[in-house]
C-alpha cells in the first residue's frame, strides 16, 4: 500500500522533471519521435476534487487504430476528450501534465484550440448530425473556416462522403435533411463531416454503441480503411470490437492506465491480472 503510494509519488516527481525538461530543452524529444500522433506524459485530470485520470503516460501511434477499453467511469472517454480539448467546455475541469502533438503541448498557451480541433476530428457516441441538409453538414467545418467557393465545397463534400462510404447512398439527395438518415448513415455522415476538414486524427467515442450490428459492421470496415490516412483513437465498450479493428489497446481502470500494448498481446497474453479479468468478463 505504502509502497505503491511511494511509487506513484516517485512517478509524479519524475513526471514533473520530465515536463520541465521537455519545455526547457525544447519539446524536441517528443517531436522527433516519428509515427507518434500524441505523446501523453503524466496527465492528471480533475473534475473539481475528483481525479478522473491518474498519471497517464502513453504514445498514440500514428496511422494505426488505438482502442481504449475499460469499464464505465474508468476515464477512457475523458482521456479521448483531452486530445481535442473538449474538456475545456467543462467548467471545473483541470488538466495537468502534457500532451504533445507534433512536439507542441496542446494545452499550451500558444495553441489555438479552434485550430487544434480542425486537425483532430471527433465522432460522438450518439450520431449527432446538425438538423441541416447532408451537404451543409459535411461542408460545415469548411464554411466556418471561411471557405466560400462552391467548387471547393462541392469537391470536399463528394470526396469526404466517398471516404466515409456514404456517397453512393446519398449522392442524389444531398439537400435532404440529415436527420432523416438511418442511425448508421448518420454516424458515417458524422465521420464524413470530420474528414472534410482533412484532419490527422479522428477520435471516436463509442461510435457504434447506438447502432445495430449491420451498421456497426459497416463502421468497423470504414475504420479499417481510414487508418491508412488517419490516426484513429477509438473508445469502445465492446471487447470484440477492440480485438477486431485495433492495432493497439489501452486498458483503463478507475483513472489508471493498467496496460497498453499491441492488441493481440493484450487479448492473448495480458500481463496484468485485472486486464485478464476484464477481458474474460469477470467484471465490467
Amino acid at each position: 500500500m505504502s509502497a505503491s503510494k511511494l511509487q506513484k509519488f516517485m512517478k509524479r516527481a519524475g513526471g514533473t522533471n520530465k515536463k520541465t525538461m521537455a519545455s526547457s530543452s525544447g519539446s524536441s524529444q517528443a517531436a522527433q519521435r516519428e509515427n507518434v500522433a500524441f505523446a501523453i506524459e503524466d496527465v492528471n485530470l480533475f473534475y473539481g476534487d475528483f481525479q478522473a485520470l491518474k498519471d497517464i503516460t502513453l504514445d498514440i501511434p500514428a496511422h494505426q487504430v488505438t482502442a481504449f477499453i475499460g469499464p464505465s467511469g474508468c476515464g477512457k472517454s475523458t482521456l479521448l476528450r483531452c486530445f481535442n480539448r473538449m474538456n475545456d467546455l467543462i467548467d471545473n475541469c483541470r488538466v495537468e501534465g502534457a500532451i504533445y502533438r507534433n512536439g507542441v503541448d496542446i494545452n499550451g498557451d500558444a495553441v489555438d484550440v479552434v485550430d487544434l480541433r480542425t486537425h483532430v476530428g471527433m465522432v460522438f457516441q450518439q450520431p449527432n448530425p446538425f438538423p441541416k441538409s447532408i451537404y451543409d453538414n459535411v461542408s460545415y467545418g469548411l464554411v466556418c473556416q471561411g471557405v466560400r467557393s462552391k467548387k471547393v465545397l462541392d469537391e470536399a463534400v463528394e470526396s469526404s462522403l466517398k471516404k466515409a462510404a456514404l456517397w453512393e447512398e446519398v449522392k442524389d439527395h444531398l439537400r435532404r435533411d440529415a436527420t432523416q438518415l438511418s442511425g448508421g448513415q448518420q454516424q458515417r455522415l458524422c465521420i464524413a463531416r470530420a474528414i472534410a476538414l482533412q484532419p490527422d486524427v479522428i477520435l471516436m467515442d463509442e461510435p457504434t454503441s447506438a447502432l445495430d450490428p449491420i451498421a456497426t459492421a459497416r463502421i468497423e470496415d470504414l475504420i479499417t480503411q481510414l487508418k491508412e490516412e488517419y490516426t484513429i483513437v477509438i473508445v469502445t465498450h465492446s471487447m470484440s470490437q477492440a480485438a477486431r479493428i485495433s492495432d493497439k489497446t489501452a486498458f483503463f481502470l478507475l483513472g489508471d492506465l493498467i496496460e497498453f500494448g499491441a492488441t493481440d498481446d493484450i487479448f492473448q497474453n495480458p500481463r496484468d491480472k485485472r486486464t485478464e479479468d476484464y477481458i474474460t468478463g469477470k467484471f465490467g
Partner: peptide
C-alpha cells in the same frame, strides 16, 4: 441538444459560430 454544440465545436467552429450557425 447540447450534442449539436459539441459537434460544432469539435469541428473547429468558434463559440460564436456555433451559436449563430
Amino acid at each position: 441538444p447540447s450534442s449539436y454544440a459539441q459537434a460544432s465545436l469539435a469541428l473547429g467552429a468558434t463559440q460564436t459560430e456555433t451559436l449563430f450557425r
